[in-house]
Design a protein around this nucleic acid. Structure first.
Length: 629
DNA sequence: GTAGGGTTAG
């Protein structure tokens, strides 16, 4: 049953203003009016006129209508027109297949292709370009045999589409072979190949090809920058972005989204802010994508105020925007705000939370010890929102329970998961081990760690956590045993690394680092800080040191933790009274946490530390995490 | 009359 406007032929609708009522238009006039129509309303009027004047079966009119509906995003209308076309030819088929591909409905596109050949309509090179666009690799391989059989494989567009199919599908060897044997390379085919490498993490190969291009356009710059951003190469992404601007190529929205994500990863707020200024100076509309990216960047760079400001000023917000804001609140320990926003989002604004929304809100509960609220939300996922919890959600709840000291309950949950076929992984057990360390529960920790080691599932974190736990309880034999195990299993500890951004440049420090040009001044500052600490009766938290060394060395090893060096550098490089922002790759240790509290009190500075899990805002000797992290 | 390259959140 066709609906309006297809059923309008018998109706008595008013005459469309655009076509006039006095004379009967020719099909050619209608066709050209369709081509120049500006919006869906105009198109509907012309369509109604075509029906009234009996041209709705005219091939050219029909074809143009079908294409225009597609281009206005009305695939349903386009398909309805296609379906009432008798014996559609290759143009009709190609066009409708393309419309489906453009809407990410690749399997429907392939079905139409199959329908086409079963009705003996011969596909041409245009058809293959359309049906291969964005097509998954398996059906793509099948289509490839058709391409060869019909002799279209040297066509530039078809070949590029094939390179793209194999490239995105991860078969980079085949993609490269098709690419290398192309009769002629184009910027588009090069970009397709680069995309393949960039998407699958081979950034070196991507970069080599990228550098070989003389005239790069915005798309290939975006692909390369996006690849770096995706694989955590934030510094490379930012450097390349600056190069892009110097090359006078205007970044597209996707480029800006990628670069904001890179800034967020390393907490480069000055770079992030300059991207924000770029957006404002170039009068680029902050839509949901850019809005979400800005919220995410500001949150991760420690400025929740800016994130909230962006959020409040957005005209449109989608679920991604809400999720970004939710995780921003969660990261910064604003659990009441997170709960309120979560409530507002689905109760007032009728935006259905997604699996990611629940990760944000459950993390928020975990960070603030809201055990019963968290449990309630977790249960509501399935019952109320019909969202099946994944391993990540279980991870949040294990963390929630474990941190709050309900270790056995958390452990039981990992067994429950097993029963419903969600196999707990080393990450979840790592979370639980972490909680065991916090509550010094050696018995459970050993049970978990040993079972992980036995199953060959242990990662560096497993050994380190157990080692930390032994150290915390002065069990040096245990620490030594862990170190031996790590050596025999070839596991290395990820070195702690802290960074600080000064004047648009990110400075990185590892423990005991002497590589910085200002090392001498940094260590002088460290000594000065130690002086303050002594004056305030501070006692070093040596229990966090994992080596069995003398007390003096233990104190010394704490003094050169990477975050202390970064803070010292911040103190000597910024104006008195200004805030200091540090980004750390691991969780902040107990000693650094205590020391930072004292530094904030003595200097009157606000110190913001982003660790692996969350933000700590140190103001006047108090941390926003309430010492619960 | 029909064609090829880039998306964001945990």
């Amino acid at each position: 049953m066709l609906t309006t406007p297809f059923s309008a032929a018998t109706g008595t609708s008013t005459v469309p203003t655009i076509t006039g009522r006095q004379h009967s238009p020719s099909p050619e006039t209608l066709a050209s009016l369709i081509t120049t129509s500006k919006n869906i309303t105009q198109l509907l009027q012309i369509h109604a006129a075509a029906i009234r004047h009996g041209f709705h079966n005219h091939p050219a009119v029909n074809f143009k209508l079908q294409r225009s509906y597609s281009s206005f995003g009305r695939l349903d209308s386009s398909l309805a027109l296609f379906n009432r076309t008798h014996d559609p030819n290759v143009f009709f088929y190609t066009s409708i297949i393309h419309a489906h591909a453009a809407d990410n409905l690749h399997m429907r596109g392939i079905q139409l292709y199959i329908q086409m050949i079963s009705q003996d309509v011969e596909p041409n090179e245009f058809t293959f370009s359309a049906v291969l666009k964005g097509c998954p690799i398996e059906p793509g391989k099948l289509l490839h045999t058709h391409v060869i059989k019909l002799g279209f494989d040297s066509n530039m567009h078809v070949r590029t589409a094939l390179v793209d199919v194999y490239s995105r599908g991860g078969d980079l060897i085949s993609a490269r072979q098709l690419f290398d044997t192309m009769p002629e390379r184009s910027l588009v085919s090069l970009t397709s190949m680069i995309t393949g490498y960039a998407k699958h993490g081979d950034l070196a190969k991507a970069r080599t090809l990228f550098d070989s291009i003389v005239d790069k356009d915005a798309v290939c710059w975006s692909v390369m920058i996006g690849g770096y951003a995706k694989y955590g190469k934030a510094t490379e992404a930012i450097t390349l972005f600056r190069k892009m601007l110097r090359s006078k190529i205007n970044p597209k929205e996707v480029t800006l989204v990628a670069i904001l994500s890179a800034c967020g990863q390393i907490g480069a707020i000055e770079s992030g802010r300059s991207v924000h200024s770029y957006i404002q100076n170039h009068k680029i509309q902050i839509n949901v994508h850019l809005g979400s990216a800005l919220i995410d960047m500001y949150s991760k760079c420690g400025s929740l105020e800016d994130a909230v400001n962006i959020f409040d000023n957005l005209k449109n917000r989608d679920v991604v925007t809400y999720n970004s804001m939710l995780s921003g609140y969660s990261m910064h320990g604003y659990h009441q705000e997170a709960l309120l926003l979560f409530h507002k989002m689905h109760k007032i604004n009728h935006i259905q939370p997604t699996a990611i929304s629940f990760i944000g809100i459950l993390n928020s509960c975990a960070h603030s010890g809201l055990v019963s609220i968290g449990k309630g939300i977790f249960l509501s996922m399935k019952r109320k929102h019909k969202i099946e919890p994944t391993i990540e959600h279980y991870g949040c709840v294990v963390n929630l329970l474990g941190r709050a000291g309900f270790l056995n309950h958390a452990y039981t949950l990992t067994n429950t998961m097993n029963q419903i076929n969600i196999k707990p992984d080393p990450i979840i057990f790592g979370t639980l081990l972490d909680s065991c360390t916090l509550h010094k529960n050696i018995e459970l920790a050993e049970k978990i760690a040993n079972s992980l080691i036995d199953q060959n599932l242990a990662n560096s974190g497993t050994y380190i956590l157990l080692s930390n736990l032994y150290a915390a309880t002065s069990n040096w034999a245990g620490v030594a045993h862990m170190r031996t195990l790590m050596k025999t299993h070839g596991v290395e500890k990820e070195p702690g690394c802290s960074s600080i951004e000064i004047d648009n440049k990110v400075h990185e420090f590892v423990a005991g680092d002497m590589n910085h040009p200002k090392s001498a001044e940094i260590y002088e500052m460290v000594a000065e800080v130690n002086g303050w600490l002594v004056g305030h009766g501070y006692r070093p938290q040596t229990e966090v040191v994992v080596q069995d060394i003398g007390e003096r060395e233990r104190v010394r090893s704490l003094e050169v933790h990477s975050e202390k060096l970064a803070i010292a550098f911040g103190l000597i490089s910024t104006k008195a009274g200004s805030s200091i922002k540090i980004v750390k790759n691991l969780r902040v240790c107990l000693d650094c946490h205590e020391v930072t509290k004292l530094i904030s009190k003595v200097t009157g500075r606000r110190i913001v530390v982003r660790d692996r899990n969350r933000f700590h805002h140190f103001v006047d000797g108090v941390c926003s995490c309430g010492d619960y992290w």
